[in-house]
Design a protein around this nucleic acid. Sequence first.
DNA 1: TAGTGGTCTAGACCACATC
DNA 2: ATGTGGTCTAGACCACTAA
Lengths: 241, 241
Amino acid sequence: MAPGPAFSPLYQQIKVLLVRSLQAGEWKPGEAIPSEMELAARFKVSQGTVRKAIDEMATENLLVRRQGKGTFVATHAEDHIQYRFLRLMPDDGSPSGMARQFLDCKRMRAPAEVARAPGLKSGESVVWVRRTLYRNGTPVVLDDIWLPAAPFKGLTAERLSQYAGPMYGLFETEFGVRMIRAEEKIRAVAADATSSALLAVTPGAPLLSVERLSYTYGDRPVELRRGLYTTVSHYYRNELS
Amino acid sequence: MAPGPAFSPLYQQIKVLLVRSLQAGEWKPGEAIPSEMELAARFKVSQGTVRKAIDEMATENLLVRRQGKGTFVATHAEDHIQYRFLRLMPDDGSPSGMARQFLDCKRMRAPAEVARAPGLKSGESVVWVRRTLYRNGTPVVLDDIWLPAAPFKGLTAERLSQYAGPMYGLFETEFGVRMIRAEEKIRAVAADATSSALLAVTPGAPLLSVERLSYTYGDRPVELRRGLYTTVSHYYRNELS
DNA sequence: TAGTGGTCTAGACCACATC
DNA sequence: ATGTGGTCTAGACCACTAA
């Protein structure tokens, strides 16, 4: 392989090329990418070098390997794991499904608090979504979601309600926006008037505030989400290592 | 290599053997393990196979590779990153150090709430530690820590205070107990009388409750910790992928 | 049976750290 | 100059999947 513009290991350069292809939509979420041998031939490197590139992308959850079948583009849509990014677990072990309810969805100028987050310019047009999640008929999560209006033209409460499965699956299939990773800032806050009403708790009750910034390919932030979780019968689960 | 008792890839078997050596203390935290070539000779496999075993252990933070120098046993003691497991960040970016204060340290029978956690039998003798962390003179963290009394014989507030550096570093060097990974359950709770007093907040104020179960080699839980964090000028940081 | 990813090997060379 | 981990290659064989 010709010495690329950057001085980095071959497999890293391959990785960059593969990510570019993903970004360009050469292979869509859920589809298989070419076999390791084909990619090795295309990039004129050995299979082992392609392998190492794919290995890293698999650990980053960009690709999924399936022995005997091939390597596939990761997706939120087919993932049997509903809510890949939701870490809220019920106290009793069963991570059963939740019911959704969309309360609002409108176009607006980005308020200052939202625009501070990278990726959304101040005053830019955004889509705002408010929804709740229920388990066993009781509200558990109140989400406020801000999205840049441009890529999400045509997003309505109607379409959100009709789509079965995780929201990020809809973003993927309908708007071509794939969430790769996210950063969360977690705080304990007191319920205000609206949140206490929507979550059926007393005003001032402690709630878990989860502020999430989600990124697509190329580390571009494309979603800001502020979730309020009731944690009387649920907890936010995290693993440290 | 002889086909071990379990049917698994060679490099996985090597990994098991390496973990056993770590557990047995053949190489202590901070020390270098033998070179890949030496290990390959010892286990009668190729260097690449040892490499893959070490690679996985490095991503699990059991080992640390340093090019040109060798591969070292991970440690909490030398890590320049103070508080490897503490995810609390100040709102202003600087993750500067915190001051510690040990309030209590005594032997007791494990209360029921604690004994429910695996690894501690009900009524077993435990060591209980209470401490606070301060930043800029104001209390931010209140930790209650329960440890099995047996391995931690001789743990006193005195020794905790005298030891500079992270608590898990002291556990390592003084008691031979190495924390490998941990699980946390995070909730929002209201400050009670004692916590509000110790954290200088009004009773009922929302606090982040972080219940941590820490594991040593072999997935044996050896510490239960319940932290209460004030999140008015700090937040719990998490990465999703 | 053919094609995929998964493992294992052996050898070459590079980059870094140390003496 | 030597020893370490890091990269790259080429080829063999295994395990799984599907036609």
